[in-house]
Amino acid sequence: MTVAIIRFGGSNCDRDAERALEYLGIDAEIVWHEDEDGLPAETTGILLPGGFSYGDYLRAGAMAARSPIMDEVREAAADGVPVLGVCNGAQVGCESGLTEGAFTTNESARFQCEHVYLRVERDDTPWTAAYEAGEVIEVPIAHGEGRYEIDDDRLDELEEEGRVLFRYCDENGDVDDPSVNPNGSKHNVAGVLGDSETVAVLMPHPERATLPDVGGVDGQGILEGFAR
């Protein structure tokens, strides 16, 4: 069992993700996106890490999403291989069509690096089985383009389908105060599911809330999704 962490030029959370997964006892391997061999044969999960792939040229994630290895990632996702996109990986996920919507410029027009509270919307997915629906977890964000944007009607449909996985909230799980929404995301959306529950993206960084020494372990349960 190996989780392939796809490294693009400009990825910078790939090693953090590898260390966090290994801390959890999950075998992981960094794979360069232009590696001739593509994904390792033993790939049982794929993590699209955070960073600034291709310098965020055009739109964050736009270039990496069109990298040839993403064809393999989409095929693997369709075959049921778990795929998790984190931060820039979430932007890549939306740009590549793995998940719907777009993560675009924060309402503040600024890069924001802070701890936030997330409300877990469902507990019946691999990424959230460690939590209870409605549970509040604390995980850091670090992004300039994390505002979730999508057509209002489509967002309603996604919500009805249970595809919203995490929402920004206060420490009690309340989402009503606009100040708890760090980037102006529609309906406070912080993470969504793709066509299946095994594909998910989120802007916050679970790998930065996994090692006990670096401030909080609330993100462990999300990464443990690769072992379920």
């Binding site: 739109r59 736009a62 069109r66 939306c94 740009e95 999508i150």
Partner: peptide, 9 residues
Amino acid sequence: ERLLANPTI
């Protein structure tokens, strides 16, 4: 369609 614009936004 395929790169320069993102049809979502």
